[in-house]
Amino acid sequence: MEKLKLELIIERGENDLTGRVTYNNNLIIENAQDVHSLSEKLKVLLFDFEELDPDRIEFEYYYDIFSLFQEFNFLNIGKVAKRAGINAGLLRQYASQVKYPSAKQAKKIEETIHQLGHDMSKVLIHAK
């Protein structure tokens, strides 16, 4: 069964996370407390409105800075900022949506997160 890849844009909602997907020029929006619940709710709506098999849907997640640090709350904003070469206070303002990053700043943050993932994938644990 071939997977259908759809972009799921995740942003700060009023009291939770908001996700939006476009399919056949239809914008589908839902809210949930976490990304997993959001994904499941959107799959149900895509089935209801577009008759898409939920098992065929694979989302590509696009996070705003707020939702990124909500979903991956184990990330230390100060440490990520330092690795990205961004002022920690400024990244905190992005994360709280007091300010919004430019495309260039967002790309720096994205590249830093990807590098962290790459570095972590090389970790080996020794047990006695």
Rank of each mutant, 00 (worst) to 15 (best):
A127R: 12
K79N: 05
E30P: 04
H118N: 10
K122L: 11
L91W: 04
G85F: 03
H118F: 13
K82I: 08
S37K: 15
L90I: 10
N76L: 03
N87S: 10
L68T: 02
P101I: 10
E14H: 09
Y61I: 15
A127Q: 12
E111K: 10
I86R: 01
I125T: 09
F49R: 11
A127M: 15
R83S: 11
K43I: 03
N24L: 05
A32I: 13
E71I: 00
V44E: 09
I9H: 15
V44K: 08
E50G: 03
K107I: 03
P101F: 03
T112W: 03
L75R: 08
F72Y: 15
E14W: 00
L6F: 06
D48E: 15
E7F: 06
K82F: 10
N87C: 02
H118I: 14
E40L: 13
G19Q: 11
L4M: 10
K107R: 13
D16M: 09
Q33N: 09
G89L: 11
K3R: 14
K43A: 01
L75E: 12
K79Q: 13
G85L: 06
I65Y: 01
Q97N: 13
G117P: 00
K3S: 10
H126N: 12
E71D: 15
V35Q: 04
T22P: 00
L8P: 03
I125S: 08
G85K: 08
D48L: 14
N24R: 12
I9N: 12
S102H: 04
N26W: 04
T112R: 00
K79W: 04
Q33G: 10
N73G: 10
G19D: 13
F49D: 10
E7Y: 07
V44I: 14
F72T: 00
I77T: 09
L4I: 14
I57L: 05
Q33C: 03
L90H: 11
T112M: 01
K108N: 12
R56Y: 02
R20T: 01
N25E: 12
I109A: 03
Q70S: 06
A84L: 11
K108T: 04
I125L: 12
I109S: 04
G89I: 06
E50W: 00
G78L: 01
F72Q: 08
G85Q: 04
I125W: 05
F74D: 13
F74C: 07
L45F: 09
Y100H: 13
A95M: 01
E110S: 12
A81I: 03
E50Y: 03
S67L: 05
D119P: 07
E110A: 14
M1D: 07
T22N: 01
P54Q: 07
E51D: 14
D55P: 00
N73W: 06
V44F: 09
A81D: 02
K5A: 07
L46N: 08
H36Y: 15
E58C: 07
I9V: 13
A84N: 09
D34N: 15
